[in-house]
Write a protein that binds this DNA or RNA. Sequence first.
DNA 1: CCGAATCCTACATGATACTG
DNA 2: CAGTATCATGTAGGATTCGG
Lengths: 119, 119
Amino acid sequence: MTIQTESPPSDDAPKACRPADCLAEDWLSFLGHRWNALALWQLTAGPLRFTELQAALPRITPKVLTERVAGLVARGLVLRSESNHYPREVSYSLSPRGRALGRILLDLYDWAEADAAAP
Amino acid sequence: MTIQTESPPSDDAPKACRPADCLAEDWLSFLGHRWNALALWQLTAGPLRFTELQAALPRITPKVLTERVAGLVARGLVLRSESNHYPREVSYSLSPRGRALGRILLDLYDWAEADAAAP
DNA sequence: CCGAATCCTACATGATACTG
DNA sequence: CAGTATCATGTAGGATTCGG
């Protein structure tokens, strides 16, 4: 399922859903992909560096974190800024679009909390 | 990641996030799991029977559909009603909780659409 | 410090056939 | 009709190591 790579051009299967549904399903898959949503959530508190993000995401390996962060950047949710002095210092922060999505996630968090509170 | 099965009892890794975050991450993983969100979405239009759901979810196999639907029911998002005459007729519909979640997904759909419209 | 390059394995997903 | 039962497989995810 070519998601974190880039464009899922022609999926083999003809999707029997309206475009908006496909879009949303795509995003949902992306967010459900392990670490993606959590990483995004961590960044809502402010910019973080690679190592900080790694520390915030227990047991994630650098390889996977690299992939996930690349996906978030590729989808325009996260911005990457790099200083060119040594040792280099890379910082990740939410784009406006990422913040907008973060607000929606917040609704989900509220829903989940209410759900847990009133079973 | 024991998610669609049932209780993820004691995750080996100590989660370094607030409870609400863990809950949300859990839900996000669940929703991102293939077919789950799409199945939920299909049911927002009204109750569907097993075969109808299968038809609405192209290329899903009965085995997987069974698993997914069981997960949705186990999480209290979907209700299952069965008639006991022959041939038997099972119908799936959203619970109030499922509908509430559906509304949040709708926000995500809107966001995704707006996102696609204004790149 | 921030990754890239390999290698490897478990699990989620699928295909197919069968049954109450 | 609404599922189970097997079997097969691809790939996401992880462990480890190395490099700019």
